[in-house]
C-alpha cells in the first residue's frame, strides 16, 4: 500500500518555505536521504514558483494542491493548480555552454526539475487544471538505514 500526504496552500511566494517543509517531512517518512530530499525539495520549489508566477501570474487568489505519494521504490510528487495552462515546450532550455555575456538568465527552473527528478510530466485538463507529476526512483543508495 502506498503512503501519501497532502497539502493545499494559497498561491503566494511566502508559502514556498511551508511547501519545502512539507516535502521534507514526506521524504523523511519515505526514509530518503538528505541529498535526495534536497533534490526533491528543489524540484518542487521550482515547480511551485512556476505555478505562482506563470500559471497564476502573481495573483494570490489561487490554490496549489500538493500530494506526495511513495512506495518501496518510487516517490511521486504532484503539483496541481487552476491557473493558465502551462506549456513546457514554450520554455527554451537554458544554454549552459555560452559565456557570461551571452548567457540568458532564465529557463533554469524547468531544467532543474528535469535534472533533479527521474521523470517529469505536465498535463492539462479543463476540470482539474494543470498537473505536474514528478517521480524519483528510490534506490538503496538514496535511502537512510532502517531506524
Amino acid at each position: 500500500m502506498p503512503d501519501e500526504c497532502h497539502l493545499t496552500v494559497p498561491s503566494r511566494l511566502d508559502q514556498l518555505t511551508t511547501i519545502s517543509e512539507f516535502v521534507a517531512q514526506a521524504s523523511q517518512q519515505a526514509r530518503l536521504d538528505e541529498r535526495t530530499t534536497f533534490h526533491i525539495q528543489m524540484a518542487v520549489d521550482e515547480a511551485c514558483t512556476n505555478v505562482i508566477q506563470h500559471a497564476y501570474q502573481g495573483t494570490e487568489g489561487g490554490e496549489i494542491i500538493l500530494t506526495c505519494r511513495w512506495t518501496e521504490d518510487t516517490f511521486i510528487v504532484t503539483v496541481q493548480d487552476h491557473g493558465r495552462p502551462f506549456d513546457p515546450s514554450a520554455i527554451p532550455p537554458p544554454d549552459l555552454s555560452t559565456d557570461l555575456e551571452q548567457r540568458r538568465e532564465g529557463g533554469l527552473g524547468l531544467y532543474f526539475m528535469r535534472r533533479l527528478m527521474d521523470e517529469v510530466r505536465f498535463e492539462f485538463d479543463a476540470e482539474k487544471g494543470n498537473t505536474v507529476t514528478m517521480i524519483k526512483h528510490i534506490t538503496p543508495s538514496s535511502q537512510n538505514e532502517h531506524p
Binding site: M42, D45, L100, E101, E105, G106, L108
Partner: peptide, 19 residues
C-alpha cells in the same frame, strides 16, 4: 542552506555587473 534558480540568477547578474 538552499538557493533556487531565482537566487542563482542574481549571482550571475551581479557577476556581470562587477566584471
Amino acid at each position: 542552506e538552499y538557493i533556487s534558480s531565482a537566487g542563482l540568477r542574481i549571482l550571475v547578474s551581479t557577476l556581470k555587473t562587477c566584471r
